[in-house]
Amino acid sequence: MADTATAEPTAADDGRVKTWLALGFIFTLAWLPAGAWDALIMAALALWFVIGWKRIGLWMIWRRSLIAWPFALAALTLAIARPGAPVFQFTIGGQAITATDAGMVAAATVMAKSWLSVQAMLTLIATTHFSELLTALAALRLPPVLILILGMAYRYLFILQEEALRMLRARDSRSASIPGQPAGRNLFWRATITGRMVGTLFIRAYERSERIYAAMLARGYDGRPVTATQPPLRPTDYFALIGGGIVCVSLIVIAYI
């Protein structure tokens, strides 16, 4: 899962710095007013520059950023919801709908912002291990319970995936065909088997995570997140933070002057 996406080149960069920069970038985007095209373009260039510089693969990020398209659909409704000068009109089910100029600008801005935000998040995820993200969030003084829940959910997902893989392997290993007999019966039967496997999967994954939890308790875990003390930030980390901060502030300044 995320492990396969972890690109090594930036492994040396501090996870906290990356997380803070990504969050800062996203907050800056959210601050930009509608129609701040120059700032949005510069934000995009800055992000793509980092992606290229760290050799993460712009194409891969773009491909994955397609998951953001539902947001784009939601943004489209802005085009007709905002008051302003009408640009064009169409009818759905006898209802006249008018797209306004202000509405279209707002919709385009939201689409650009969400696309860039998703790319920033994907860039972060592609280069940062989940445990580093948790550490970074903890350093941001997020409530420990929340971080614990995030960590548990993530671990559970992995257990789920692992259990699913071994069950599929078990099934394939006994999916045999003998001469003169059609193998696999019929689609309905195979679907039933798969359906039951899903049920079993959740029970098994749940029980395994319970066992893991019991093992954690047995080794003295008492509900507090276990994180090694964090190394201090290095000078390069501070440079990265300051550089990123300057970029974010400039974007906002450009957008508002």
């Binding site: 007999q181 696999g184 019966r185 039951r196 079993t200």
Partner: peptide, 17 residues
């Protein structure tokens, strides 16, 4: 990988048809 022992043992023979 099945919900019951019977289902699991029966899977291979059933799959073979």
């Amino acid at each position: 990988f099945s919900p019951t022992v019977f289902d699991d043992v029966a899977f291979g023979p059933l799959y073979m048809g």
